[in-house]
Design a protein around this nucleic acid. Structure first.
Lengths: 346, 346
DNA sequence: TTGTAAGCGTTATCAA
DNA sequence: TTGATAACGCTTACAA
C-alpha cells in the first residue's frame, strides 16, 4: 500500500485557510494571527505533513544544502580530515542545513561545474586547498558563495578558517628550545605536496624557516614521502648531513614512525637521545605511538564547524549588505607527550 | 552583473524544437533523430546549459541523492569509518548520484523522519548499525529504499554489506594456533557498545566464542573501554585471572596501546612473551605501532562502495520487479606484522 | 519522430 | 490579516 504524502494544499483545506497562508505560517514570512497559526499547526500534525524540499527550493531558489568539496588523495584521508567532515556536518545540521559530499579529484573539475549549475546547493565549503586552486577559481566565476578550510596564496575577500602554521611551527620550536635544543630539523610532507602547492605543506615550511631564524637557531628542513620507509631514510640522511641535530619537528603522520624506527636502528632512545614533536597531527594517532608523541594537535572539528558558520554568515546576510569576509587562523594545541625532552649532552 | 542561467526552453528555442524534445534528448526517454539531437546538443553547449536538479526532481520524483546515516559517537570516528564514507561517496559519484551526510544521533530519530519526508533523497545508506536499530525500523516504515553497512540481528529482506566477523575471528585464532598458541583471549569494545547491541561488538564476541570452541582451545573474553588506560587495566586483570594466556585478539584500536604498555610494565616483549592480533582495524593505524601489529584489516572502502551499489541496484530496478536483497559478508585481510609469534616456553 | 500541455509542491507578488 | 494565482524549470502522458 502506497500512501501519497500530504501536500500543503491538504493542510490548507483541513485548516480551512488559503494555501498561501499555510506557507506564510510555515516560514514566518508574513504575520499570521495566532488562532490561524494554531489551526494550521494542528492540521499539519494530524496529517503528518512534511514540506517538500524540492518544491520549496525550486520556488525560493534556496535549498539549504551545502557542498563539501574534498579530494581523495591516493593514500586516503586521515583522522584530521574525518574531523573536518564531522564538524562541518554537525554545524550544518544545527543550522538546518544539509551537507553534500562532493569528492573532487583533479580531473573532474568540470564535475564541479556541473554541481554549481544544478541549482542544488546554496554554497560550498572547500577542503584541502592549494595555494593556487582551480576549484576556488571556478567557484568564484560561478558566483557560488563558498568558504575554505585552508586558504589559497591570496584569499582576497574569500572567507576561510585555517590552521595558523606560523604559530604552530613557532610553538613547536619554542617547546624544544625551552628544553634546551639549539639545532632542530623539520620533516615535512612529500615533495609532491610541496610542488603542487598544498597549503599546509608550504606554509609549515615557511613558518618553520621563519620561526627558526627568529629564534636564532640553526634549522634543517626536508620534504619526505608519506610512509614509514621514507621517514626512516629521511632521518638517516638528515643525521648524516647534520650530526648536530637533537630534535625533529615532523609534519607527516605517516613518516614519523619511520623516524622512530631509524632511531631504534642506531639505538637512540626517545627522548633521551633525540626529541620528536609531531605537528598538525591528531592525538588520536600519536597517542598510539610509544613513547607517546608530543603533538601540536589541530582543532579539526572546530575548523569544520567554523568553515560552515563562516559560509552561512555570508549566505544568510541580505544580498545588499555584502559583509566583509571572515578569515580566521586557529592555533594547534600543544599536548606534551613523552617524545620530547632535554637534548643529550653529546 | 548577474546573468540568469539558461533554461530548457532557451535551448529548445535555439535548436528550434519543442521543449519536450530537449527533455527527451537529454534523458534518452524517447528516441530523437540524430540530427535533432545534434542541434540540441549544440544549443546546450553554446548556452552552457545545465539542467536544474530541483525542477527535475520535482517533476520526476527522483533526485539522485542518497543519504548516508552516520552517528557521531562521543570519541569520534576513525580511519575505518572515513573509508566507508569515501568509498560510498566515490561509488555514488561514479553512478551519477550525490551523497548527503546525515549525522544522526540517538535523540534525533525524528530528524530522520524529517529527512525521509522531504522528498529530497532517493534512498539511504545506514552506517554503524545496531542489532536492534530504530533507524532501520523507521526507514522501513517510511518506505524509503535503503541498505546497510552492517546489519541488524534479523536483516530480513534488507540488503547489506558487512564484515564477516565469524570468519575474521576464526582467521585470527587460526593464525595464532598455527604459531602454537593454545590459550587465546579476546579483548572487545566497550561494555556500552555491547549493551546497546552494536553489531560488530556482539558479532565478534560470538564469533570468537564459536571459533575458539570449534578449535578446541580455551578462551577468555572481555569487553574494554575504548582507551589506553582501560586496555592496560584489562590486560592486567586478564593475566591475573588467566595466567596461561599467551596471546590476545583485540578488537579495540584505542585500547590495544594500553595492552602494549601493560606488557612493557611487566617487561614482556611482543611477540616473544606475548602475541597480539588487532582485528577489524586499519593498518593505517596499526602500522604506527611498534612492533607493527598483526592485523585483520577490514575492506572498508570496498564496503562503502558496495553499500551504495546494493542500494542503487534496488533503486534502479523497475518497481514491479522486486529483486531479492543482496546480503554480503566480506572477510578481513590478514596482514602479518611483528606482534605475533610462537608462544613462549614458560 | 515531434509537439502540446498538464502537472510536480512550493514561494511570493498582487489584491483585498 | 488573508486569499488568488503566477511563477519556479522540468517530466511525461497524450496527440499528431
Amino acid at each position: 500500500m502506497v500512501t501519497v504524502p500530504p501536500r500543503m494544499i491538504d493542510v490548507a483545506k483541513r485548516a480551512d485557510v488559503a494555501l498561501s497562508t499555510v506557507s506564510y505560517a510555515l516560514n514566518g514570512t508574513r504575520p499570521v494571527s495566532a488562532s490561524t497559526r494554531r489551526r494550521i499547526m494542528r492540521a499539519m500534525e494530524e496529517l503528518g505533513y512534511r514540506p517538500n524540499a524540492l518544491a520549496r527550493g525550486l520556488a525560493s531558489k534556496r535549498t539549504r544544502i551545502l557542498a563539501l568539496l574534498f579530494p581523495t588523495p591516493e593514500r586516503g584521508l586521515g583522522v584530521t580530515e574525518m574531523e573536518f567532515v564531522t564538524g562541518a556536518a554537525d554545524a550544518a545540521r544545527e543550522h538546518g542545513y544539509h551537507l553534500m559530499l562532493a569528492p573532487s579529484e583533479l580531473r573532474d573539475i568540470h564535475e564541479l561545474e556541473h554541481l554549481t549549475g544544478q541549482g542544488l546547493i546554496d554554497g560550498a565549503l572547500v577542503m584541502e586547498v592549494r595555494l593556487d586552486d582551480e576549484r576556488v577559481d571556478l567557484l568564484g566565476q560561478a558566483g557560488l558563495p563558498f568558504s575554505m578550510i585552508g586558504r589559497t596564496s591570496d584569499p582576497g575577500t574569500i572567507s576561510y578558517a585555517d590552521i595558523d602554521f606560523e604559530q604552530t611551527t613557532r610553538d613547536a620550536i619554542a617547546h624544544l628550545m625551552e628544553l634546551g635544543h639549539r639545532c632542530v630539523g623539520f620533516l615535512n610532507h612529500s615533495p609532491s605536496a610541496l610542488s603542487v602547492g598544498y597549503g599546509p605543506t608550504v606554509r609549515a615550511a615557511e613558518g618553520f624557516r621563519r620561526a627558526a631564524s627568529d629564534a636564532g637557531i640553526a634549522h634543517i628542513e626536508r620534504p619526505c614521502g608519506d610512509n614509514a620507509a621514507a621517514g626512516k631514510a629521511a632521518f638517516h640522511e638528515l643525521r648524516a648531513s647534520s650530526p648536530e641535530l637533537t630534535a625533529l619537528v615532523v609534519m607527516n603522520e605517516r613518516a614519523v614512525i619511520g623516524v622512530m624506527n631509524a632511531l631504534d636502528e642506531i639505538s637512540w632512545r626517545v627522548p633521551d637521545d633525540f626529541s620528536i614533536v609531531s605537528i598538525v597531527s591528531s592525538t588520536r594517532v600519536t597517542e598510539m605511538m610509544r613513547p607517546q608523541l608530543t603533538t601540536l594537535e589541530p582543532p579539526s572539528t572546530e575548523l569544520g564547524r567554523l568553515g560552515v558558520q563562516i559560509l552561512l554568515d555570508q549566505l544568510e546576510r541580505p544580498h545588499d549588505e555584502p559583509l566583509p569576509p571572515t578569515q580566521k587562523l586557529l592555533p594547534c594545541r600543544l599536548v606534551v607527550g613523552a617524545s620530547s625532552g632535554p637534548p643529550p649532552a653529546r
